[in-house]
Simulated assay, not measured.
Amino acid sequence: MPVPAPILYPPFNIVRLSHVEYRVTDLAASRAFYVDTLGLQVTDEDDTVIYLRAMEERGHHCVALVKADAPSVGVLGFKLYDEPDLDKAAAWFAARGLPVDWVERPFQGRTLRTRDPFGIPLEFYVKMDRLAPIHQNYALYRGVKPLRIDHFNMFSADVDASVRFYNEIGFRVTEYTEDPETGKCWAAWMHRKGGVHDIAFTNGRGPRLHHSAFWVPTPLNIIDLLDLMATTGYLANIERGPGRHGISNAFFLYVRDPDGHRIEIYCSDYQTVDPDLEPIRWDLKDPQRQTLWGAPAPRSWFEEGSLFEGASLVESALRAQPIIAP
């Protein structure tokens, strides 16, 4: 697929991704994983929800863990630049026949709730409660020392269509994987904040959330987390890595939380702020695309993901086969 030209002046201004709401079945088990093991900081909690932030973040939360009967993803959140952008976004989604609801959300100002054409629940806001900085309070650092939420990756039944839609609202393609037999896009990485991606799409039954990712200081923090998980009952939760991606050039590790939600620990990608940045094309059969060095991804990485609440699943028509570990 020809990658669409970036829209440098989109209909409303998305600053970055902001937060994810995970539905979890056991708050205590989830707290032990996200707080005691990964090292996210609790900003508020009760017997139904836990709010978390990473060490460099000033907004109230980047993760909400909500008690539920079954695991799912409630919403993906994005921060807009200013209040007029909220009204522009509402008008834009309404004009395309997509839902527009103004909702009350704890610790957030005026919030627009909608869905993309594929069923992914989205919310947009401008103001979230601001907290005191803690990035130099080194006594609080533990686990993998997560600094900030970095990106979401979603399974999409039609990656080309997903790219076209999110391109319209200002996300720009940095890298993509093309199936050489059909010319279709098998995966794509798109950004707003100037890293390799705020969102990405991977071919598969969708929509489902493939993973959320957290940026950490160095690859050594990832090694420390592996040692910690291997000796505190989380060995089976280590799914893939460590390694370095060809796409994004990032050092990575994939782990699963107690409900199976996939989390990527991530560092070392590159700057993408130039408006004339040329997207990098990868061939689906290039083994260094997914892993510059190290083992191929396991089958679970290509097939398992978290359901979005209220979204209907669609099978992908693109049957191209990536390289899978034996």
Rank of each mutant, 00 (worst) to 15 (best):
L17K: 07
L17E: 12
L17Y: 08
L17R: 07
L17N: 12
S18E: 01
S18N: 06
H19M: 02
V20E: 04
E21S: 05
Y22E: 05
Y22R: 06
R23M: 09
R23H: 11
R23I: 10
T25D: 11
D26P: 03
D26K: 01
L27R: 09
L27N: 07
A29E: 14
S30N: 12
R31G: 12
A32Y: 03
A32Q: 13
F33H: 06
F33C: 07
Y34K: 07
V35W: 04
V35Y: 04
V35N: 08
V35I: 05
V35Q: 09
D36C: 08
D36W: 04
T37K: 10
T37D: 09
T37R: 07
L38S: 06
L38G: 07
L40E: 07
V42M: 03
V42D: 10
V42T: 09
V42G: 04
V42S: 00
T43N: 03
D44K: 08
D46A: 09
T48Q: 15
T48N: 13
V49T: 15
V49M: 13
V49Q: 15
V49N: 10
I50H: 00
I50S: 02
I50F: 00
Y51N: 02
L52H: 02
L52T: 03
R53P: 03
E56D: 12
E56N: 12
E57G: 05
R58M: 12
H60Y: 10
H60S: 12
H60F: 11
H61E: 11
A64W: 03
V66I: 14
K67H: 13
K67N: 12
K67S: 15
K67E: 14
D69M: 08
D69N: 10
D69A: 14
A70E: 10
A70R: 11
P71E: 05
P71R: 04
S72I: 06
V73G: 03
G74N: 04
L76A: 11
L76V: 09
G77V: 02
G77E: 01
G77D: 02
F78N: 00
K79A: 14
K79F: 06
L80N: 02
L80P: 00
L80T: 04
Y81W: 13
Y81K: 11
D82T: 09
E83V: 15
E83P: 05
P84R: 00
D85C: 10
K88H: 12
A89F: 01
A90K: 06
A90L: 01
A90N: 08
A91F: 10
F93A: 06
F93Y: 09
F93E: 03
A94F: 03
A94Q: 12
A94N: 07
A95I: 11
A95L: 08
A95Y: 05
R96W: 11
L98N: 06
P99K: 02
P99L: 03
D101K: 14
D101W: 00
W102K: 11
V103L: 14
V103S: 01
E104A: 15
E104P: 07
R105I: 13
R105Y: 15
P106T: 14
